[in-house]
Design a protein around this nucleic acid. Structure first.
Lengths: 332, 332
DNA sequence: CTGTTAGCGCTTTCAG
DNA sequence: CTGAAAGCGCTAACAG
């Protein structure tokens, strides 16, 4: 790899002039600039981004850290779309995207402190608060996506409101025994969704029956097992709200196996509105989450911060939208 | 951010000792190492990866360049899975993944020459040969994924063989008028698939009718338009081979609209075996492509090269597998 | 307008 | 075993 010195000597100028010519400053004679450019061309020279980063103190890299138990993370249809939104904005702003799937909490701090990136987008809510605390203290510009934490800017979804919408929707369709299935009930986002579900029940004057709420494990099949638990514990519900689409979809399977028909016997609605949800039969109703917007806005927030335009932690909550398809239709 | 100098003075040693202690060399007294580690801890120090990269001449970053007309590229279900495979291997080998979606051919060369990455995985076959030529000349360790080019190591799929399998499959099912629908016929991979299709026809003693081959544009709906073209130009085929799954799926829609039933009237089979293909109704038969394997093996090839273990360009062709589902079933 | 110089933070000889 | 010193390739004052 040629260096700036070789370019300088070939062009017959000093290295500072090469630097100036390449960085588009105007204090360079047309003649010198031409010679420099020509030398770069023949040598195939490009300034080393590493050397440049060292002296300028910034890398133009943004880290996207997705923590998940399911690796590789990019295969998760939710996060893949979020990442797509991030990608779009970073690219438009000439930042490079460093994709990092964190196996251990420690990896995040290492990434934040080794100076490989100018800022960090932390996606998902599987990060321990204690790590977030330390992360905030590093001072590295950071934005949380799909998660929030005091002291850190973030962009999230209106989980409570979305679940409220979904639940009210099935109730308005005439359902009275509404169940809630989830992969787990620890995830803060799922908890918020459950809270919205309960509030909707309450507002409709419907009783809350704990036997109609279950978690079946952190996997695609979680909803299936949750549904079976519910079916085993009580009389079948006439509606099911899934904490997310996979939970709802796999719950449908359990319903089917139990001889229940969707939506005739049981209305089903999911949450997230993944692309694949429209493909099930019957097509799954869902609560639309602006996944790309999450990524896009997260990246925008971070970039504003990198440019020094913003400082105080800012929180953005994206609204949801009810998407009614066949699975939550009225009774036959 | 603390520097090595601060750590050194806090620990009461020279910076060289700090460096040695942190890089696990043994020429450091237990006592000194302990003091250094303690100092790092209290200061929250991590060596700057940028400075380290500059002196060591490597970044531990690997670039993944996906060129596509469809941005953001990660939303493409094929490449997303390929990237997942890459991610898995890079992470296991402590490389960071720099995701780069190239808008212009020029971006690739810039990425290759600015020293931000130690090696490059170029995914997809939308890169101009002339750019690949230049890329090879940069000397940066590079592996092509899902594409090949003389002089560059690569990992690809047996497109010809896969299409041959698919076509023979429908012929063995008793079909005689087999069509081929694609997004375009310029993409070298699609051309290879078309060639496999033709060979299968030939080997079965079936005539090749150009009116049964069409391209409908580079979009999800490409297969739909291609199918309509074919339906308009000739008597309906009794089987359709899609150059990829999206083409096959959208072709099914055109068939349906024309009053043809799948698979009774027309057998349909795709190529790639995307996750979503199993969800259509009837579920789409397809030629399975080991997408994760493409990414995984590409990354392995690159890493071997970065470690200096390999040198001569090596080409790997991954086999395909026929996946029979409902769409290519026998006539009713 | 231009060249010289001093680092950016680290690793790595090279003498102690 | 350890510290001083020399860069890695570049940018940014600072004098011409």
């Amino acid at each position: 790899m040629p260096t700036i010195r070789e370019v300088a000597s070939l062009a017959g100028v000093g290295i500072a002039t090469v630097s100036r010519a390449l960085n588009g400053e105007r204090d360079v004679s047309e003649d010198a600039r031409r010679r420099v450019l020509a030398a770069c061309e023949t040598l195939g020279y490009r300034p080393s981004s590493v050397a440049r980063s060292l002296v300028r103190g910034k890398t133009e890299n943004v880290g996207v850290a997705l923590m998940s138990r399911h690796a590789p993370v990019i295969l998760n249809p939710f996060y893949a779309v979020v990442t797509g939104g991030v990608e779009e904005v970073l690219e438009a702003n000439d930042y490079h995207l460093l994709l990092s799937s964190l196996k251990r909490n420690d990896d995040l701090l290492a990434l934040a402190q080794e100076g490989r990136v100018d800022g960090l987008l932390v996606v998902g809510c599987d990060i321990a608060d204690e790590v977030l605390e330390k992360l905030a203290r590093t001072g590295l510009p950071t934005v949380l996506v799909d998660h929030s934490f005091p002291g850190l800017p973030s962009v999230t979804t209106d989980h409570f409101g979305g679940a409220y919408q979904a639940t009210r929707h099935v109730i308005e369709g005439g359902r009275q025994r509404v169940a809630f299935v989830s992969e787990n009930l620890d995830n803060p986002n799922f908890r918020a969704r459950l809270a919205g579900f309960r509030r909707a029940l309450e507002d409709a004057g419907l009783p809350y029956d704990p036997r109609l709420v279950a978690a079946g494990g952190n996997a695609w099949e979680g909803g299936y097992y949750a549904m079976r638990q519910i079916l085993a514990a009580a009389a079948p519900p006439d509606a099911v709200v899934g904490a997310n689409d996979p939970a709802a979809i796999s719950a449908m399977r359990a319903l089917l196996e139990a001889g229940l028909e969707v939506p005739r016997d049981v209305a089903v609605i999911g949450f997230d509105d993944l692309h694949l949800s429209a493909q099930t039969s019957p097509p799954l109703s869902s609560v639309h989450v602006d996944k790309q917007g999450l990524g896009r806005i997260g990246a925008e927030l971070l970039i504003a911060r990198l440019r020094g335009e913003r400082s105080e932690p800012e929180t953005r909550v994206l609204p949801t939208a009810l998407v009614v398809r066949g699975s939550s239709g009225g009774r036959a």
